[in-house]
Amino acid sequence: MIKQALLGEFLHEAENTRKILKAIPDSALNWKPSEKNWSTGQLASHIAEVYNWYEPTFNQDVFDMGKYQYDKGDISKTENILAKFEENVAKAQKVLENSDENTYFNEWRMEMNGNVIFPPSPKVQVIRGFLCNHLYHHRGELVVYLRSTGNKVPGLYGPTADDIM
């Protein structure tokens, strides 16, 4: 039952993520709001990467970021970021579909080289906080990036100011 709810949200939100990533023109990929921020391309790539974290979140009790390796690929073109997104979403969907609800309340933590960086929590809490909410946070940033570069923002939960009513 929990799995079906998570899967429904996953599929709906993956489509929303797809819409926002498709809205990024290549000309905006190098833009960033300040020296402290990621570029649009780096942010979009990170959003695509979050889907790569489903396997270690669902299937491991400890996710060691010190050993984690991920090939972002060429992020100089939106189509490349989208391709990586599609690859990661397909894998994440399979992980979610094959997950065992009996493990959703097992303790999970994230470490980096032996140091705990995400405290022990039930996996279902991590799924909602680390995977879902984290993704939504970065998508919100991406909306601001698109607006700041004069680009249109697609409607995710209804029309935006760019949609003709």
Rank of each mutant, 00 (worst) to 15 (best):
98 N>E: 14
97 E>P: 04
54 Y>S: 09
48 A>H: 01
129 G>W: 10
118 F>W: 11
45 S>D: 02
151 N>L: 00
145 Y>M: 01
88 N>S: 10
108 W>M: 03
14 A>R: 10
115 N>S: 14
81 I>C: 03
137 H>Q: 09
51 Y>F: 14
88 N>Q: 11
147 R>A: 06
113 N>T: 04
128 R>H: 06
77 K>A: 06
54 Y>R: 08
164 I>T: 12
51 Y>S: 03
24 I>Q: 00
90 A>E: 05
149 T>K: 04
2 I>G: 00
137 H>A: 08
158 G>I: 01
9 E>N: 15
122 P>F: 12
82 L>F: 12
56 P>G: 04
11 L>N: 15
15 E>K: 12
134 H>I: 02
123 K>V: 07
125 Q>S: 12
105 F>Y: 14
97 E>L: 10
16 N>W: 00
82 L>A: 12
19 K>M: 06
11 L>W: 07
80 N>I: 10
64 D>F: 12
40 T>V: 10
144 V>F: 09
50 V>D: 02
96 L>Q: 02
136 Y>L: 05
163 D>F: 14
93 Q>G: 02
53 W>P: 01
76 S>L: 07
101 E>V: 11
148 S>T: 07
134 H>W: 05
129 G>V: 11
77 K>Y: 06
105 F>N: 15
62 V>C: 15
107 E>H: 13
140 G>I: 08
32 K>F: 00
87 E>I: 10
109 R>L: 08
41 G>Y: 00
143 V>E: 06
59 N>W: 10
60 Q>H: 11
125 Q>D: 10
139 R>H: 04
66 G>P: 01
79 E>R: 03
122 P>R: 13
58 F>N: 01
63 F>E: 07
87 E>G: 07
13 E>F: 14
113 N>D: 04
92 A>W: 11
56 P>L: 08
133 N>L: 08
15 E>T: 06
80 N>M: 09
46 H>S: 05
110 M>A: 14
80 N>P: 06
71 D>C: 12
65 M>F: 15
143 V>Q: 05
107 E>F: 11
108 W>S: 00
56 P>K: 13
9 E>A: 14
1 M>F: 12
55 E>L: 11
43 L>Y: 03
33 P>I: 05
